[in-house]
């Protein structure tokens, strides 16, 4: 069943790209277990992807400009908060969050959501990342994300 009624909600979606290297490896497992679990993604020299990051923001459409958020502001914010820190970088070595956690694309979604949720002009709804054209991952914090799924991940008070 679908909840009926309610106001119209409009979201603005924007796609960005960056290229980065990573290695899936955790100190919590032995070398053999890492190799078995992560397979070729555990290659000690790392490997890379062309990531596509799709973000959605919601808010009222300003009648003066017809926009939820000015694209120049959104692009500048994403450039500063994410692309400058991630593009042509090693995620393991150069993004502090991945000293503690494995840079899977699941964790990358959570980290990018954390970095972007303070965007001042609109509400960040979700982050969707394509690691390759065949694999994509999505994280929405506490926002609805299609069917209700308990993620167990809450970001309250998590921002440094």
């Amino acid at each position: 069943m679908v909840a009926a009624g309610g106001d119209l909600r409009v979201e603005l979606g924007r796609r960005y790209r960056f290229a980065a290297s990573h290695r899936l490896h955790t100190e919590r497992l032995s070398e053999e277990e890492n190799a078995r679990l992560y397979g070729k993604c555990n290659n000690p020299h790392g490997h890379g992807h062309n990531y596509v990051v799709e973000i959605s923001v919601s808010g009222a459409i300003d009648p003066a400009n017809g926009m939820i958020a000015n694209l120049t502001d959104l692009d500048g914010f994403v450039e500063h908060e994410v692309l400058e820190a991630f593009d042509h970088r090693s995620l393991n070595e150069e993004v502090p969050a991945f000293r503690e956690s494995v840079p899977t694309t699941e964790n990358l979604c959570i980290e990018i959501f954390r970095r972007l949720r303070s965007f001042p002009q609109a509400k960040l709804e979700r982050v969707r990342i394509e690691e390759t054209s065949n694999n994509s991952f999505e994280f929405a914090g506490d926002n609805p994300i299609g069917e209700p799924v308990e993620t167990g991940v809450h970001l309250e008070g998590n921002r440094p």
Binding site: G5, G6, D7, L8, R9, V10, E11, L12, G13, R14, R15, S56, I68, L71
Partner: peptide, 8 residues
Amino acid sequence: LFADCYRN
């Protein structure tokens, strides 16, 4: 660049 519309 895209926009999504839903009934809340």
